[in-house]
Design a protein around this nucleic acid. Structure first.
Length: 572
RNA sequence: CGGGGCGUGGCGCAGCCUGGUUAGCGCGCCUGCCUUGGGAGCAGGAGGUCGGAGGUUCGAAUCCUCUCGCCCCGACCA
């Protein structure tokens, strides 16, 4: 590849629309261009990086026994009606009508299509297990696309779907995929954590998210500083605090708290810590009111609440709704005598002599105790974990870090196979629904995440396995034909050795070439110029640490080959 | 959906409040000279229906109305 003939429109200035670094750099380096909100064209170098990631994904999926296929992007409404998601999915599903007035949609995911395909073609346990994947463009009509490739509407995804005869098989497949994912992200040269994720009603440890660690990540993850425990906020647990030693319950007491509604105001007024107060939040759980008790300094994790209540969604009631439901203005709610169902966070159940709202304007109650003064229907871990909490496994300090979700693996069970009546016959002739799993990787997002994690003030710094090209060779000849000849012969030599190289033979001053080479983040930069004229040496500079090695021309290709092979295998 | 901001050559912006000749600047682009190890210099040049529609006015990038697009923030914790 010759730079002068390549479509690499680099920019000196950062386009105003780009907020995060990966987006800025991909625009500046000529990797992508926006067509419209959340929709991008991939230019040659951007595509090359994507292809690198795809290839690693392919190799590891195949190694794990999965088979590649390609499913349609346009899908008929009927299938989605069968699974019930035509109604459930919401506006992220882009729907349209074709010329025959048939309802269709652009596939945001492919459970329906793959399940349909398998139910029509696989009828025996002898064909199982089966694991099929594709690498394809998905479309999700995001509310607010942002951050370039990080959250686009159109994006490239690898999605795999597995079909097993029973739960045991499905678990084994899940485990295989988890290991494949570890290999994939390691090979991409990324720092990541596999975190436990919420698996909804199915339960068990059968959902992991793969998070690339980067400060600009959209998700917060909880990780133990000592052991391997890691989870996302929906799932994170903490070591339970010990029950307090035999504190005598004191008599319940009502106290006037005029105009004090917020936790902060009440605790300051009563000169107590938020840890001694319990707040009462009213939620509408699928429309039905429920009160949630939580320590004053804690916050609700809504997904945990949904799981406890077995509902689809919970929504905090607004002031008016709270008053209509309880007859009490917000700020003075409490569990004692409240007429709606009560649930409590585990921590609350251990507290003694705490303060709550008195269910009366301008009054709170003190020395309240669970089971004596009120009873709850259920209690469970319902709160957000904080950095003050300790690891549930080993008790060490937990740490909150930001991450970019690049992969998600999930045991689906029989949700889709039952809905779509996708069954096989077992060895006794019984008709049994497939036990499924699904496994996604945001391929285009991996590239963005890699840049978020690996860059400096001069530009991107690609890990070699996913760099769009491995080597950039700068011809710094000026008018010296000998140098040009040397650069050309080195270029041919590298090509002959199957090394991916771009030759920068543009009629530009050296500074321009250096700047562009850095911006593009190409791992190895070879320079043929002054030191070649003086002592016949080619300089080799590594992008990530700036180290320069000078070697005779004749030794250069072999040296480069060695470095590349090292980098490619060390990540495996 | 709600709130805010922005649409002026390929990119980054000024001009708009207070309407008035050929709409500016930097970068990029083209030609020539010159220069050649960290985004050089000089000279010349191309390129803009000022997002779109309507209105006010003798006159609109500028004022008014509508519209489209893009970006950011928020999407409730008593």
């Amino acid at each position: 590849m010759r730079f002068s003939q390549s479509f690499i429109p680099t920019l000196k200035e950062t386009p105003a629309e780009a907020e995060v670094i990966s987006h800025q750099l991909m625009l500046r380096a000529g990797f992508i261009r926006k067509l419209t909100s959340g929709i991008y064209s991939y230019l040659p170098l951007g595509l090359a990086a994507i292809r690198k990631v795809e290839q690693i994904v392919r190799e590891e999926m195949n190694r794990a026994g999965a088979q590649e296929l390609l499913l349609p992007m346009v899908q008929p409404a009927e299938l989605w009606e069968e699974s019930g998601r035509w109604q459930k999915y919401g506006p992220e599903l882009l729907r349209f009508t074709d010329r025959h007035e048939r309802q269709s949609c652009l596939g945001p995911t492919h459970e329906e299509v793959i399940t349909d395909l398998v139910r029509k073609n696989i009828h025996s346990y002898r064909r199982l297990p089966l694991n099929l994947y594709q690498i394809q463009t998905k479309f999700r009509d995001e509310i607010r696309p942002r951050f370039g490739l990080m959250r686009g509407r159109e994006f490239i995804m690898k999605d795999a779907y597995s079909f097993d005869a029973d739960d045991k098989g499905a678990s084994a497949t899940y485990e295989k995929m988890r290991r494949a994912y570890e290999r994939i992200f390691s090979r991409c040269g990324l720092k990541f954590r596999a975190v436990e994720a919420d698996s909804g009603s199915i339960g068990g440890n059968f959902s992991h998210e793969f998070m690339v660690l980067a400060d600009t990540g959209e998700d917060t993850i909880v990780a133990c500083t000592k052991c391997s425990y890691a989870a996302n906020m929906e799932k994170a647990r903490a070591m339970e605090s010990p029950a307090p030693d035999n504190i005598e319950p004191k008599p319940l007491e009502k106290i006037e708290t005029p105009g004090k509604r917020k936790v902060k105001a009440v605790t300051q007024f009563l000169k107590i810590s938020p840890k001694e107060l319990v707040k009462t939040l009213v939620f509408l759980a699928d429309g039905r009111p429920v009160a949630v008790l939580l320590r004053g300094d804690h916050e609700v994790q809504e997904v945990k609440l949904c799981n406890l209540l077995g509902v689809q969604e919970v929504e905090l009631a607004d002031d008016k709704e709270v008053y209509d439901i309880t007859g009490v203005p917000t700020g003075y709610l409490g569990p004692v005598g409240l007429k709606i169902p009560l649930v409590a966070d585990l921590e609350v159940m251990k507290m003694v002599n705490f303060t709550v709202g008195a269910n009366e304007k301008n009054f709170h109650s003190q020395n309240v105790n669970p089971n004596r003064d009120f009873t709850v229907e259920k209690s469970a871990d319902l709160r957000m974990i904080t950095a003050e909490d300790c690891c549930p496994l080993c008790g060490a300090k937990l740490e909150l870090t930001r991450g970019i979700e690049v992969g998600h693996i999930f045991k689906l069970g029989t949700v889709y196979s039952k809905a779509l009546n996708a069954c096989f016959l077992d060895n006794e002739g019984n008709e049994i629904p497939f036990v499924m799993g699904c496994y996604g990787i945001g391929v285009s997002r991996v590239v963005a995440a890699a840049i978020e994690q690996n860059h400096d003030k001069d530009g991107m710094i690609f890990p070699l396995p996913i760099a769009p090209v491995q080597v950039i060779l700068l011809n710094l000849a000026g008018k010296d034909d000998k140098i040009t000849a040397a650069a050309e012969s080195l270029y041919q030599e590298l090509l002959a050795d199957n090394i991916e190289v771009i030759l920068d033979e543009r009629d530009e001053r050296p500074g321009v070439k250096f700047k562009d080479a850095d911006l593009l983040g190409i791992p190895l930069r070879l320079m043929v110029g002054k030191s070649f004229a003086k002592e016949g040496k080619v300089e080799i500079r590594t992008r990530k640490d700036g180290k320069v090695t000078a070697l005779p021309l004749a030794e250069t290709t072999a040296y480069v080959r060695k470095i590349i092979d090292q980098e490619l295998t060390s990540a495996e």
